[in-house]
Nucleic acid binder design. Structure first.
Lengths: 183, 183
DNA sequence: TCCTGCTATGCAATTCGTTGCATAGCAAGG
DNA sequence: CCTTGCTATGCAACGAATTGCATAGCAGGA
């Protein structure tokens, strides 16, 4: 139970339509919480029925109308309650780690293919890191004062950057292990 | 679709009952793939029906009988096919990052509670790191030759260690941000 | 002897998440 | 004019995951 909470945080930072939320989940929020547009629309309806968010139809020029949502006081209260509850352990699902251990049961050709995959995967994360770094420079340039919200967004972004750097280093380790050690 | 694959890897490393698999998923495999015993029992049944694993009833002294599974050739083929397919992007769900950004919408008291939570969370991950390091020393002592499977298990464990270290550093950054910067 | 706790497996209900599809308006380009 | 692509929302169906509960044997300690 927490897509609701991620949505509430995002709407408190900035009101949005379901579509806009889905885009945000592809970008900034999606760094630490993924969701598809169907999930978001369904949950938004339920949240509106529960009074956690208020929807407002907005006509637009040159594109379809949208329904813009903002968090209500009740929603904010729900979020606050959740914030103060213990952090639940994360559900980890790391495909690549399973594949690496599985490689022991494939032949040299299979491991060769896995090496290609690891390289491709590494390249996507290099891009991710570059995107984060660009975002950090754009949104949080050195030497500028930050308000509370910005400080918090910044420290989360630093976490994303640290994660990507760690991952790239580890992937180098993985490639070396796959290349040099194995028959 | 991948709990099956994690189970196949685990069974190829060592045959096991559903219960033993569940315990492994709490320990070693659980570092990168979580699953409850209900999930595992259900999936094992389906896998046996599909011929991916073979089950064998084993009587035991002093404890209930168990049903031990090993991966079949068909299961191994399924695994190999998956190993060679592209790595799917991970579904990230990071509670704590959402809470940190959400802290901008709580008061000082709420942020104080969050600080306590972060400290508690940090302590659990310090334990996790210590456990990984002890496991590494036990299973992969320096200077000993490793076969293919061990090298691969070792590199995955090194990934876990790198992750935990990165996380602890970041949590220090988070605590500093929460403590010094905010009203 | 009774209680607690561990091994070992499972059902049922519900909620969550994914996939495929559908609609509809408008813009831009060939 | 036609196609492609983007904004914007949604349904239906299915499969996956979670939660709560149930059973049952045995060990060990109070």
């Amino acid at each position: 139970m927490a897509l609701e909470h991620a949505i509430l945080v995002s709407l408190l930072e900035q009101p949005a339509s379901g579509y806009e939320l889905a885009r945000r989940f592809e970008r900034s929020i999606g760094r630490f919480w993924t969701a598809t547009h169907q999930q978001i629309y369904r949950v938004l309806k339920r949240m509106e029925a529960d009074g956690w968010v208020a929807g407002l139809d907005v006509g637009q020029d040159g594109r379809p109308d949208k329904r813009s949502y903002r968090a209500s006081d009740a929603g904010r209260a729900v979020l606050t309650e959740w914030l103060r509850a213990p952090v639940q352990p994360e559900a980890v699902r790391h495909d690549l780690a399973v594949k690496i251990r599985g490689a022991a049961f494939d032949d040299a050709a299979g491991r060769g293919r896995l090496i290609d995959e690891v390289r491709r995967y590494r390249a996507t994360h290099e891009e991710t890191l570059a995107r984060y770094l660009a975002g950090a420079e754009r949104d949080f340039p050195a030497g500028r004062a930050e308000d509370t919200g910005q400080q918090l967004q910044h420290v989360v972004l630093r976490g994303g950057i640290a994660y990507e750097r760690m991952l790239l280093d580890w992937l180098d380790d993985v490639l070396e292990t796959l290349l040099k050690g194995l028959p």
